[in-house]
Nucleic acid binder design. Structure first.
Lengths: 216, 216
DNA sequence: GCCAACAGGATTGTCAACGATTCTGTTTGC
DNA sequence: GCAAACAGAATCGTTGACAATCCTGTTGGC
């Protein structure tokens, strides 16, 4: 395995290790439950063990890795039950964000939502589930962003990080994008109508449907 | 300053530093925005700097301390606006917990809630705001616990950690306990009635009142 | 043949020291 | 008198090595 080139100038070792590791986990390059040996990672990223260690501690409190005393670190696997519980929290928090976004979003931001909605419609029509999944992610991110609720946003990003694997699994299920599409469009419409209650309700009902799909 | 005695046997250095520091911040022993110098803390807790450092990294991602590159760590101060945003998230998440608790709590657990409610009533009658504040905290903790929603609980504990200072400030405001008491009793009644919607609504309206008080 | 005790290897936890960066108070030039 | 440059101190970031702990495969006894 080739040794990593020098970090993007100025980036500190710990930061680099953190970014790389998080990316690797989120992109699924690390198998679930894979052992994460500090020494190996250190060599792979071209940093020292202490930096890797610091990154692992941070990722542990983000819920992405699991650390056991004197036993090492592993990529955390979330069970279906956990995924459901996490999505229930998302229901509560994204509902809040959608309601806020319906009130505070600017007109340009609303147009942005419309664009994404159209792209999603096209992705479903063309039968591109992975593209749809990406747009799905983007839509939720935009709603979070437009809400201006920094606290809720950081909580939600933490939660979403734990769901990567389940998200892919869900997107590839046949028929799922079609059902999900109409729910997403309803969310967009409610926000564009600047109706906070309808927006919250639309988000909650969408995520309730996600929960059902997870369980199914 | 006396040097700390040895840790409770078996507790590792990093864990010890983490626990101690968190306790100190939560109990208000560290002034807000106080500088947290790694060397001083290391000597004070009788551990090495590396352990303190690891603890600080963890506390940073819990939102209790703020770290700036090459500038050191500080106790994070949350502005009123942030406190409001945090409480809005609590509204969403504790609402979820209350609804779940109303369905899943056992009878013994419901009795426990009743007890706390009575103790709160007594504390207000006796004019003991600090005792009331503690019971307040306990009540919310019980509802979280009874919900069985582990994910939501850990998010909420993180959020609550950031509000310590504001909580004390609020509890000592004249007239506040009286208003808060009836809201708390309404929450308890709704859960005891096993009515999830009413429980969620009661929690939300209580926290909305907290937000108003924070802003006032 | 099976279970317990035991050595070997691997991995993490901890430590003390070095180097890099940033702030603070002072001095110098205008 | 004031702004900019400078030296000094303080503090964090990083490194490499050592000690403690735990798993694994093996051996010996029953």
């Amino acid at each position: 395995m080739p040794k990593e080139p020098g970090p993007a100038s100025g980036e500190q070792a710990r930061q680099l290790a953190l970014t790389r590791l998080r990316q690797a986990i989120l992109h699924g390059e690390m198998a679930p439950a894979q052992r994460l040996v500090e020494n190996e990672l250190a060599e792979q990223f071209g940093v020292t063990r202490a930096s890797v260690r610091a990154a692992l501690i941070e990722l542990e409190s983000e819920g992405l890795v699991e650390r056991i005393r004197n036993r090492g670190s592993r990529v955390r696997v979330v069970s279906v039950d956990e995924a459901v519980a996490i999505t229930e929290c998302r229901m509560a928090l994204e509902g809040l964000c959608a309601a806020k976004a319906a009130v505070t979003a600017g007109d340009g931001q609303l147009d942005r939502l419309t664009e994404v909605g159209e792209a999603m419609t096209k992705a479903v029509a063309d039968g591109e589930p992975m593209l749809y999944s990406d747009l799905n992610h983007e839509l939720h991110a935009l709603i979070r962003e437009f809400s201006g609720q920094q606290t809720a946003v950081s909580l939600l990003e933490r939660l979403n990080g734990q769901l990567v694997r389940h998200r892919f699994q869900l997107a590839l299920r046949p028929g799922r994008p079609q059902q999900s599409l109409s729910e997403h469009l309803a969310m967009i419409d409610a926000i564009r109508a600047r109706d906070p209650q309808a927006a919250e309700a639309a988000v909650r009902s969408h995520l309730a449907s996600v929960i059902e799909a997870l369980r199914g």
